[in-house]
Simulated assay, not measured.
Amino acid sequence: MLLSFSLLILCILPLSGAMDSGIVGGKEAIPHSRPYMVSFQSNKQHKCGGILIKEDYVLTSAHCLDGYEKKQRLEVVLGAHNIKKKEKSQQRIKVKECIKHPAYKEGQTNKSFDIMLLKLKNNANLTDFVKVIGLPKENEDIPANQKCSIAGWGMKKPGGCASDVLQEVTLKVQFNFECTHVWRDYFDRKRMICTASDGERGFCQGDSGGPLICNNEPLGMATYTYPGNCIKRKFPEVYIKIAYFFPWIKKVIQST
């Protein structure tokens, strides 16, 4: 089985029919209601989501750099609602260094270490539109059926373009045993969580690295969905469990 990752989405024609939608069945977020949200960009094109966890650090998915070439210009855009406009609230900062988890290997089917820190060249200026979000420190099981939300600038419909404005959708956490039953060895309950799929709502290409927010905490980070159909009813969507990686995140920030 091949995995489908929510990677870079550009509005280029013709788009492949295999492209899936991003935040599906959701709605436009209230502008700047998620001031921690980041658009991770390559050559000024949206690549993945992310979250600002320190003035000079962004957390996102490691697979967002799969196939990366050094000539590409990597930046983050903070304080954005519409990433196609030059809003006064926006801050564009170059990425100084990309630090993948050492256990992540491009091309491997095991994606349970799909996490990366972006060290920014300059500190973000914290404002009403740009804020740091705290990370969960206790690595606890997340109860099933808990309502959470995820946001991003991914595609809204199959074969379409990335969304200009931030979209959001509410989802429910799935039982770990259901995730394991369906995904088998692809799902690691120690380092991953998943949300129930109803065939109507979810994330997809362009939304990787976006946080799953539960009770105002970023508990998960969008990682992968079913190939060819991001909201396939029988396959829960999978997220990296952020709390598991808190010691690594802390160690990296302190050492750099």
Results as ranks from 00 to 15, higher is better:
25 G>A: 05
203 F>A: 12
85 K>F: 09
252 V>F: 00
113 F>D: 14
41 Q>H: 02
119 K>M: 04
160 G>C: 01
68 Y>A: 09
103 A>E: 12
246 F>D: 00
80 A>S: 09
121 K>Y: 13
104 Y>M: 05
89 S>K: 12
33 S>I: 02
183 W>E: 01
110 N>A: 06
118 L>N: 05
108 Q>H: 04
78 L>C: 07
153 W>L: 03
119 K>R: 15
165 V>I: 08
211 P>S: 04
240 I>Q: 03
243 A>V: 05
37 M>I: 13
214 C>S: 10
235 F>L: 09
183 W>H: 08
147 K>N: 11
32 H>C: 01
79 G>C: 04
207 D>Y: 03
12 I>K: 14
4 S>E: 15
44 K>N: 13
243 A>E: 08
56 D>Q: 08
108 Q>N: 08
209 G>H: 06
150 I>H: 06
28 E>A: 07
108 Q>D: 10
22 G>S: 04
25 G>N: 10
20 D>W: 02
125 N>F: 07
117 L>C: 04
198 D>Q: 03
80 A>M: 09
102 P>Y: 09
194 C>G: 11
93 I>Y: 01
244 Y>P: 13
247 P>D: 10
5 F>L: 11
40 F>A: 05
80 A>E: 13
105 K>R: 08
163 S>A: 12
150 I>Y: 09
146 Q>A: 12
129 F>I: 03
83 I>Q: 02
105 K>C: 02
239 Y>P: 03
220 G>S: 05
32 H>R: 03
131 K>H: 06
185 D>L: 12
137 K>Y: 01
74 L>C: 14
221 M>I: 15
107 G>E: 11
181 H>K: 13
94 K>A: 10
254 Q>V: 10
145 N>D: 13
11 C>T: 09
77 V>P: 02
240 I>G: 06
231 I>V: 10
165 V>C: 12
150 I>S: 11
38 V>Y: 05
192 M>V: 05
227 P>N: 06
204 C>E: 09
120 L>C: 00
140 E>R: 13
247 P>N: 12
1 M>D: 13
172 K>Y: 06
77 V>T: 12
64 C>G: 08
188 D>P: 02
103 A>L: 11
218 P>K: 01
127 T>N: 14
101 H>K: 10
235 F>E: 00
107 G>Y: 10
184 R>C: 02
214 C>Q: 07
86 K>H: 10
149 S>H: 12
12 I>Q: 12
196 A>R: 14
179 C>T: 03
177 F>I: 09
27 K>W: 15
183 W>Q: 02
128 D>N: 13
82 N>D: 15
99 I>N: 03
185 D>Q: 14
17 G>M: 07
74 L>W: 14
222 A>R: 11
202 G>Y: 02
46 H>L: 05
161 C>Y: 05
215 N>S: 08
229 N>I: 07
204 C>V: 04
222 A>N: 06
38 V>M: 08
110 N>P: 00
241 K>P: 06
73 R>C: 05
109 T>L: 15
65 L>M: 12
123 N>G: 02
189 R>H: 15
4 S>H: 06
